[in-house]
Amino acid sequence: MTASIVDITPSYYLLLAALLFSIGVVGVMVRRNPLVLFMCIELMLNAVNLTFVAFAKRAGDVGGETTVFFVMVVAAAEVVVGLGIIVAILRRRPNATTDDLAELKG
């Protein structure tokens, strides 16, 4: 195998994470299905995780990776609670989009 054509520095990962985060933001702004909104939030969380790991590599500091571990725990808890709320709402009003959920009163 030849040597790397381009040296991959953490900046490449940061740019990729910026792209991923922006795609997630656009998705949250555009989509109307609450489940897909949640998936877009996961995209944003993953972009931030990638940033953390890239910085941890650049600084030689394991603290960034520990933070990613905690982000994953919080993301799991957030998804569980969020999907619970979505199940409760959609059971009452099937096919509700985010536009229909402007008020919390059922």
Binding site: Y13, V53, A56, K57, E65
Partner: peptide
């Protein structure tokens, strides 16, 4: 993203 983590030597993550 998992592949990127391996490339960044964050195996456990």
């Amino acid at each position: 993203v998992a592949v990127h983590f391996v490339a960044l030597s964050a195996d456990f993550l």
